[in-house]
Amino acid sequence: MKENIISINHVHFRYPGQTVYALKDVSLNVAKGEWLAIVGHNGSGKSTLAKMLNGLHYPEEGQVTICNFPLKDEFVWDIRRRLGMVFQNPDNQFVGTTVQDDVAFGLENNGIPHEVMVERVKASLQRVGMLDFLNQEPHHLSGGQKQRVAIAGVIALQPDIILLDEATSMLDPRGREEVLRTVRQLKEEQDLTVISITHDLEEASRADRIIVLNKGSVYREGTPEEIFQLNEELIKLGLDVPFPVKLSEILRLQDFEIASNYLSEEELVRELWTSNFKK
């Protein structure tokens, strides 16, 4: 069992002036080095949870511990240095007038010396494949490129955790692919913990573990295989299931033999062929 890098215990939270809980008795752990996807329809509380992990909200009840720091005013800046966040709207998190200025912004805030900064800006942009865009202005970049710059800004601070708050939901398919590829690559290169809040199936099905939120509470938790087994239940929650799961379901109704629930098309194609045609 790997050590927990984040632990959330019985957390409750309401927005000021609201009676309904945005988070209701949420408990969950994140292991060091894992890729966790948090899914849920709009308004399920997933973005509230994301903001709490970054100390932008504090729990009304319950405890949150991140990288051994309890979530409290005095540690919030330590937490923010270790947990980098990429937000949904590529435009509204781009602070610098050029790519390199934007990557440097977080470094400047943390008082990193100039020489180190220059090195880290270059190295981070290299890692997300945006080094050629050093002096580009944001309005000349595509959404996917802006998000990669945002990721560079996060990794420049050498965090332990990177949190994607619907970071791909405003992108076109190409941009989405760019961003996911980048994150996957970064995760392989070093021992990053990734939390992605999403309703993109592609993104969720590649995670090590999925947590389904509904109405501010944890509805289910499990591996992608386990979660997508829920099929109809997820659809009722306003979510979708991956294509192979949907197809398997329909094929079974037509008396095809499909042994288990596959998440990849490749596996399903093989299963379909070997157990139904190749006889």
Binding site: K51, N54, L56, W77, R80, R81, G84, M85, F87, N89, D91, N92, Q93, V95, Q100, D101, A104, F105, G106, L107, E108, N109, N110, G111, I112, P113, H114, M117, V118, V121, G153, L157
Partner: peptide, 27 residues
């Protein structure tokens, strides 16, 4: 206004807390 709000949140998340103790990238 919405942009300003989101930008403020993003800036805070990226560790911005005023000019104190900040270094400069551009010299």
């Amino acid at each position: 206004f919405k942009r300003a709000e989101e930008l403020a949140v993003a800036m805070e998340a990226r560790g911005y807390r005023g000019g104190e103790g900040r270094t400069k990238y551009r010299l």
